[in-house]
Simulated assay, not measured.
Amino acid sequence: MAHRIVILGGGYAGVTAANRLARRLDGADVTLVNERATFVERVRLHQVAAGESIALQPLGQRLRPDVTVVVARAGGIDLERREVVLDGDAASDAGRLPYDTLVYALGSHAAPAPDDAVTLATVDDAWRVRDRVGELAAEHGTVAVVGGGLTGIEAATELAERYPAACVRMVSDVDPGAWLSHRAQRHLRRVFARLGIEVVRGSVTDVRGGAVRLTDGRAVGAGLTLACTGFAVPSLAAGAGLAVDDTGRIRVDGTLRSVSHPHVYAVGDAAVPELPNGRSFRMACATALPMSAVTGTAIADRLAERKPASLRFRYVNQCISLGRRNGVIQAVDGDDRPHRMILTGRAAASYKEAVVRGASWFSAHPGPYRPARTVSM
């Protein structure tokens, strides 16, 4: 019987792992499980929210022909029986997908947000923002972006550039881009000023009645509130009994294999490698892609009774788009600490676009491929 490999998640990490495994393992049965039949370039969701049309590619067109795509939600993992429970149907054998090796690549979702706020973690979120912000711009209304991190910065600048008639406010308890170098922060402030983005410092307690309410009693009016306050991982891994850290990310060794269950590997946002210097990876396709490539090779090596190599990774830069015509590329050291050197303006925007295109290409490489076989369940 062929070795059965099941991959949960069809984002950058899952697609990369599936293609690497299918290429390295002749005769293996590789199956990728994803909730939707399309691949979403998550790093472009701020563009979608601002009204740009982004093509959704069928997963089968990004995978090798010997990868089977199952369109279904993973509702559970039975580690003892080595089965994935599909759509929460624990009672039916038809709702169970057996595996010999499991690759967990379910990524992350938006952190909890107030009911009256919209997040920006899925393409459905982006479509909701797109539909509402167009109406607000026509009314000269206000959009409040909560959170001064990467997602908030890219969303705020994209919206302000595309809809100059709208008032865009960023609400954050820290300075936007506080982790960047002083030069990069100065450039960010200049871009915010040029685009008319108002920064309101404060901690948010609630979003209701068309306003963002702060701990000091202030209320920031907004026709639409976009919550960009971070990401969390699904509870599926912890619920199954895999060893996780205090955020629910699966603890893995240098080959991305679970420290508690050797037949399970984890890659991307939902994994936390135990690295020699004790640092943890930020959630990004920049880390997901090499993790997935190493995992595919490690599984193939172990099945061939070869010693697998461990992940070796160092950061190079952080890429931030500030609308379609501006950006900032922050040079960093191997541990992700910012250098003084930055790239800004149109050159930075072009660089960021090249990186995004490169990430999409790498996940599907090598190619071109015939469409993979797709099964809906």
Rank of each mutant, 00 (worst) to 15 (best):
V84S: 00
S108D: 09
L214W: 02
D216H: 04
L242R: 06
A28Q: 04
E52V: 10
L32M: 11
G202R: 08
T31K: 14
R162M: 10
L159I: 14
G75P: 04
A111W: 00
A271H: 00
M341Y: 14
T16D: 04
R370I: 01
G221L: 09
A354S: 13
L63F: 14
P262Q: 12
L97D: 03
L120T: 07
G177T: 07
E274H: 10
A293Y: 08
P276R: 07
R218Y: 13
P114G: 05
L136K: 07
P58F: 08
H140K: 15
L256P: 02
A105L: 09
L236I: 10
A138P: 00
L275Q: 02
G202E: 08
D66M: 02
R357F: 07
A178G: 06
I77A: 13
A237H: 03
T151R: 13
E161K: 08
G148M: 11
H365C: 01
A237K: 04
R132S: 10
A13N: 00
H261I: 07
L214C: 04
F39T: 13
T122H: 06
G177Q: 10
R96W: 01
K307C: 03
A156E: 04
D89A: 13
P368F: 12
Y265T: 01
V123C: 04
A144T: 07
G95K: 11
S350P: 01
T16C: 06
I299G: 12
A193C: 05
R370V: 13
G230M: 08
V171R: 12
R213Q: 13
V133Q: 00
R183V: 03
S53A: 13
R186S: 11
I329A: 03
P290N: 10
A243I: 03
V129C: 04
S321A: 13
R62T: 06
T229C: 12
T68N: 03
A121H: 11
Y12E: 02
V244L: 02
G27Q: 09
T119N: 08
L275P: 00
F313I: 09
A232T: 15
Q57P: 00
G323K: 06
